[in-house]
């Protein structure tokens, strides 16, 4: 409750300061670049989702430690699988003060919507804060305990087996396609808006399975409603030791969701260096380590050219996956 109060106060303060800051003359660039006005912190997803929760935590940590001389001003732009946010960054009037929290729709949305004319190679890499994980979930009452049980049950049900997921032709559907192909299944994929809604479908037994992130199923799992069957990771997750990875079961499929911070295209090198150092500091903080552990987040900190290389590699992987699904 205390944190939320502070968040709202700081957001309101930031909104007020942005008026004050806009009227100040730009200070001459000195040795180290510093923001001269509040930083616009765009969130490429809706309120309450994984990306949103993470962005607000990042902002709170930076604010509390006083690591930035100007406040971060979070604003959600979830429209069109993130295309609203991407367009906003591309057209940013002040690229040095515009950064964004992003996820895998950073690759898929520009690929699927060439009309918006976004080339992610022009964006400024700041920091990859984590890779979120995916697991295959079923309801406790289904009695399914292993992937073999799952495959048998889903095979019998055929097209009436319902897999709920977030959005069309996004992460969850990619994973569903993999399961269908690898186990000879014909599950029916139903898209919902947001991971929380998907999790609720499973808890209410309106769907037979989901491929949620741990943070989305956390509540129902804690309540004993849902069970993870297998993980789309390299190694078993500490939180769910009984869920084997697909890798150890002989299916070479590993899939992560990036949780990264990206700067607007055209950001100056000095500003980019400032943000890269800032988020490195956040990554190394105790608060972030705690959050990563609680939400089973993986992955190291990537920045600069290494992050850009990672994006290009992931974009190619997603392009191939989308092609295979007939989405391109």
């Amino acid at each position: 409750m205390q944190i939320t109060k502070r968040l709202f106060l700081s957001a309101a303060l930031a909104a007020g300061l942005s008026f004050a800051g806009a009227s100040l003359p730009e200070t001459a660039a000195s040795a180290a670049w510093e923001p001269v006005k509040p930083i616009e912190f765009v969130i490429m997803a809706g309120k309450g989702g994984g990306a949103d929760k993470m962005a607000r935590l990042l902002q709170a940590v930076i604010q509390e430690k006083g690591w930035a001389s100007k406040p971060l001003n979070p604003i959600n732009k979830p429209g069109g699988s993130g295309s609203e946010a991407l367009l906003h960054l591309k057209g940013a009037r002040d690229p040095d003060h515009t950064i964004m929290v992003t996820l895998n729709s950073f690759y898929t949305t520009p690929l699927r919507q060439p009309k918006i004319g976004i080339d992610i190679a022009t964006f400024t890499p700041i920091g990859r804060m984590a890779e979120d994980t995916f697991l295959l979930w079923v309801h406790k009452d289904s009695g399914i305990k292993t992937i073999e049980d799952f495959a048998a049950a889903a095979k019998t049900a055929g097209n009436s087996w319902i897999m709920a997921g977030t959005g069309k032709l996004q992460e969850d559907q990619l994973l569903t396609d993999f399961l269908n192909a690898s186990y000879g299944l014909n599950m029916k994929y139903i898209p919902y808006k947001g991971g929380g809604k998907v999790a609720k479908q499973l808890a209410g037994k309106h769907a037979n399975s989901t491929v949620n992130n741990p943070s989305e199923q956390e509540g129902f799992y804690a309540n004993g409603d849902t069970v993870p069957i297998a993980a789309f990771t390299d190694n078993r997750l500490e939180m769910f030791p009984n869920a084997p990875t697909f890798k150890e079961m002989g299916k070479e499929f590993v899939y992560y969701m990036q949780r990264s911070v990206v700067g607007a295209p055209g950001m100056s090198a000095e500003a980019a260096a400032y943000y890269q150092a800032l988020f490195q500091k956040v990554f190394d903080s105790e608060e972030w380590a705690k959050y990563r552990k609680k939400k089973s987040l993986q992955g190291d900190f990537l920045s600069g050219q290494a992050l850009m290389d990672y994006w290009m590699k992931e974009r190619d992987i997603h392009k191939a996956m989308l092609k295979k699904m007939g989405a391109l």
């Binding site: 429209g79 069109g80 295309s83 609203e84 069309k168 032709l169 898209p191």
Partner: peptide
């Protein structure tokens, strides 16, 4: 107005204004 959640396609984006790309 905005984007269709089921198909993921944009719809009713009046005059192609970016403001209509969200509901």
């Amino acid at each position: 107005v905005g984007f269709d959640i089921i198909s993921g396609e944009p719809r009713l984006v009046f005059l192609d204004l970016p403001g209509f790309s969200r509901p």
